[in-house]
Amino acid sequence: MSVLPFLNWLGSSALANAMNGPEWAFPVVECFHFFGFALLIGTIAIVDLRLLGTGMRRQSPAELTQDLKPWTLSGLALMLTTGPAMFAADPRVYYFNPSFRFKIACLLVAILYHFTFLRRAVRPDVPPVLGKLAAVVSLALWIAVVGGGRMIAFV
């Protein structure tokens, strides 16, 4: 089955019309996308920096993960609702955009990585060197997601 009929359907859906309607619709949704990833990536970065031995050192990585979990998840939810809405505004263009594909690939890996490896890396019995490695990979993945996203408009 081809994905094109779906893209065509999405591109003429009510959501697409709303996103392409008033001039301010897209940039405003985009801003909420920014708020979402600031929450998501900012709170993950606090944990990553802690794993690297800097930042909030008076708390353990596991404590920080637990403290920030509702905010990380809220950011993820906000990002995963505003992102598809932006995609709906012009599905065919995004689908064939190499930066978009790169970004989505990195995003899927980053989310999977976060809920599997990183969640384990914050445990107290993990050797610090492995925690550091896990943190570097996490930061690199999220940087790739944001960088890829920024490049969508330029390729």
Partner: peptide, 18 residues
């Protein structure tokens, strides 16, 4: 430069939110 601007908003904007 735009990417760095955006990344800094993500990383440190998130800390401000915290």
């Amino acid at each position: 430069i735009g990417g760095v601007h955006l990344l800094a908003i993500a990383l440190f904007g998130g800390m401000l939110l915290a």
